[in-house]
Nucleic acid binder design. Structure first.
Lengths: 136, 136
DNA sequence: TTTTTATGTTACAAAACCTAACATGGTGTT
DNA sequence: AACACCATGTTAGGTTTTGTAACATAAAAA
């Protein structure tokens, strides 16, 4: 785990501070936890302790609630955003690999990109896509 | 405009057929139009006529409604999905690039994909079983 | 045409979701 | 102990979504 990740997940704030930071009531914060949009840590005395990540999530929740999105919708948006992060990271990786290719290969790819431009197809990562690289 | 796009946007079905195709009530369909999740065409006599695209949208709406997402949430998901489609397109393109690479380079990418997948979807892939394919 | 069926709009009510308000009791500090 | 802070539960009220009904118009069938 990286240092910044530790900093972002370290339990730091009691609920009173979080109320001030987010402009949410304690009731709201507990309600969002009850519905598993956040998972703050607990002290030995059962007090909630919130990390910076929790604060970020709560601010996003607040935004979406203000736009009328309900908790089920926020849950969906959060999980679809994780996928987005994944694809963005893959995209970064693909770019890196591409940088290591020869000009010749690059031209081939570029040409296929152009011919495929404007095509939107549903595709997700499946294990089957990788199976040919593994022996069973 | 491409031929398939014309086919997908051509007004074809009256609301009665759409009810059967989607298992939604007329009331629901009209309500979703009222809140601008769909925009079916109209005949001269003011009847709604739905395209294949409209049907797809309604099926997605139905799915999300079944999961408890409200209309504001669906609206957000639809607009965030446009971005998602773009990244999926890039992902698909990344796959194509990958196909043209040596297996050695491929394993590098694959490993980064697996660590990403493991971060969010621990149950679907067992990273441990595959680690023997990668050099540390 | 006349009759029947499908669809349009509007209004009212029920159910579910989210928040606020309050009560009761636990935790921690001084 | 006194006091502030926090946890949990209950109740009530506003909003969103859907069902239902009433009535008008369009399209199809007779």
């Amino acid at each position: 785990m990286s240092g910044s990740e530790i900093r972002r997940t370290m339990p730091l704030f009691p609920i009173g501070i979080v109320m001030q930071l987010t402009d949410l009531t304690a009731r709201q914060i507990r309600y969002y936890e009850e519905h598993q949009l956040i998972s703050p840590a607990r002290t030995e005395g059962n007090r909630r302790m919130f990390s910076l990540n929790d604060i970020d999530l709560l601010l996003e929740i607040k935004d979406l609630i203000d736009q009328g999105v309900n908790l089920a919708g926020i849950k969906q948006l959060f999980s679809s955003k994780e996928k987005q992060v994944v694809t963005e990271e893959m995209q970064k990786e693909a770019k890196k690999v591409r940088r290591e290719l020869s000009d010749d290969e690059l031209r081939k790819i570029l040409r296929s990109e152009l011919t495929q431009a404007g095509r939107f197809n549903r595709s997700s990562l499946r294990q089957g896509d990788m199976s040919r690289f593994f022996k069973s």
